[in-house]
Amino acid sequence: MIWFVLKRLIGFAVTLVVAAAVIFVLLDLLPGDPARFILGINATPEAVTALQAKLGLNLPAPERFFTWLAGMIHGDFGLSYTQRAPVAGLIGDRLWVTIPLSILAMLLSIVIGLPIGILAARRRGSPAEAGLMTLAQFGIAVPNFWFGMLLVLLFAVGLHWLPPGGFVPWRENPLLALRGLTLPSFALALPQAAILARVMRTALVDVQNADFIRTARAKGMTMGEAVWRHGVRNALLPVITILGLQFAYLLAGTIIVENVFYLPGLGKLIFTAISERDLILLRGAIIILIVAVTATMLILDLLYAAIDPRLRSRGD
């Protein structure tokens, strides 16, 4: 088991270093000089050169890469080109929006998706199932930002129940902060819930035909009892796998949804950093996303191994 964990951890570290190198090279290839962007159309060449020196852009690429990598190991992500503030702090502030938003969206997708999936599986072949699955198909097809706009039109412009966007910091008023995250988390959750519902339904339908359900039925349980006490638990395994994968999609989804709802999250930060060629900020933010996703995968891997001993030996 220790060997297994160690191998996974080494794999995690290697992934991060390779990802850092790839990101650095790709972003360095982006056309556009950050100093020229900051100083604009009328800047004199001397002023641009002076700013390049100030930002360290005149150093050779390998030197910039290793300085950046060495800094990150100590938690120093460098200084933002455009905002002239430490990148780590800028990203840290944004996580207070993006992480609660992702978690909220994830919870909502579970709360909405799983019951629909279970219901559909229990009512197999009925018009109710057909209706629910059509709805789920629709949910998968609808882009989350467009759904977000519809929500805004209904709940903010029409009914005035919730703000159309924006965010009040948690320290100022936690309830208002939560209000600001309500519509965007619904917008993010709907497509995920639709996927979950379909996966849950399929898994449960498969389980219903499993031997252990027949055994439970033979021991005198009703179909409902058997599915609820034995079926759902077994059907949850593929659902958990999907949830892990969805976390990555949720983080990526925040880039667009945060722009629609003008939320100060990591997604909006990335969007702005791209357009302003704040490469150092962009690199830091993308690394954080990669860490989040790979760490989720690592935890899932370890969890599976803990639950199912078969996976441990197969891994070797």
């Binding site: 706009m149 805004v152 039109l153 903010a156 412009v157 005035h160 703000p163 159309p164 966007g165 924006g166 722009n259 629609v260 709802f261 003008y262």
Partner: peptide, 18 residues
């Protein structure tokens, strides 16, 4: 000062009185 870059969002923010 509130920063809203998306044109559709700008319309909603004005119409909602935000």
């Amino acid at each position: 000062f509130v920063f809203i870059s998306d044109p559709n969002t700008a319309i909603s923010a004005v119409l909602a009185g935000d």
